[in-house]
Simulated assay, not measured.
Amino acid sequence: MKQKALVICPGRGTYNKEELGYLQRFHVAEGGSDKAEFFARLDSYRERQNQVPISELDGRKSFSMREHTRGDNASPLIHACAYADFLSIDRERFDVVAVTGNSMGWYIALAVAQALKEPAAIEVINTMGTLMQEGLIGGQLIYPLVDEDWRLIPGRRDALLELMASVNRQTEAELYISIELGGMLVFGGNEVALARLQEQLPPEQGRFPLRLHNHAAFHTPLLEAISDHAQRILGRDLFSAPLLPLVDGRGYIWHPYSTDIARLHRYTLGHQVYLPYDFSKAVEVSVKEFAPDRIIILGPGNTLGGAVAQALININWQGLACKADFIDRQKQDPYVLAMGMEEQRSKVCG
């Protein structure tokens, strides 16, 4: 009997030094005409835009923070890795019952569910990544809501919201909640606000506060102009009804037979661009509504695994109460399978 699978698509920040050559290792080397043709069409599109082909970026001898994390490069590169991973899922073993994603992963989720057919997905994802890079406004910063055992810290959220309000009372500062990311809160804001926020946040867990390199103030009102531009140049004719249920960054479900395409277009290039993205809610709704036997996280990388686990712990899913519970579960019978990890990948691929 097939296992029901929820597929989660990754966002920006998942293709790093360790992922260099991901396409070559996991996809080009294993062959497959469907993937080869997809990569060729993506490269051809990039060349027509006078941009570096994805195969060339993935094939570099060394990772360049400056080149590989740029929005106009990172977005289509992550799209290529994730979509190829989706094509590698063993459909004899897994019945994909729903798809969701984190932040930019929403566009990839649209591609996976065929709400954006391949040419449209290439155009939308490449265009949005390019627009973000050309109009790089502000940035993002991450701070934890949980302790090192992934238990919510009492009063932490309220304290952070009070601090955000305090920062916004200062001259020229604009700070917003960008993403609810499991056990972490992602702030988006302008440089003045982020600098003041970072000054006032105490160091935590050896890496927070964490400023994200080459990220704009995604999912905040600072990007309304980019949203307006995107809606003018990316028409709703690029969108279709999904073939799989989609769970968006509000926890709203887009069903194959009831999707209003005009609304999907407006959400994707409107609300989703300049209002907060609640990835935690997306995970919660997905598991409660579709009761998957497994959660499959598409690559590249495995950084999203912690956020997914934390989102599950937040709702005490299947008795998970802390990091130790999740690790024990993963050792016995892995519930979350990250395709960016070779051992877990082998449990997913045909």
Rank of each mutant, 00 (worst) to 15 (best):
I78W: 01
L298T: 12
S88P: 03
K61N: 10
L298V: 11
S55L: 05
T100E: 10
A324K: 15
P256V: 01
F94I: 09
G13K: 01
I315L: 01
A5S: 10
A29K: 15
Y83H: 12
G340E: 02
I315M: 02
L222D: 01
E199R: 14
K117Y: 13
N168H: 14
A80V: 11
Q330A: 09
S240W: 11
R156I: 03
V348H: 15
N102T: 10
W106A: 06
R46F: 15
G270W: 00
P221T: 09
A80L: 11
E134N: 05
L223K: 03
E204T: 02
V28T: 13
M132K: 15
G139R: 04
I297Y: 07
I295Q: 12
V99S: 09
I142A: 00
V124R: 08
D158C: 09
G105E: 11
A324N: 14
D333V: 06
S280A: 09
E162C: 05
E191M: 00
F326T: 06
T14M: 08
V308Y: 07
P256N: 00
Y83I: 12
R169K: 08
Q310V: 04
G11Y: 07
Q49I: 07
D248Y: 03
F218W: 08
Q198Y: 01
N316M: 05
Q140T: 12
K281H: 13
L264R: 12
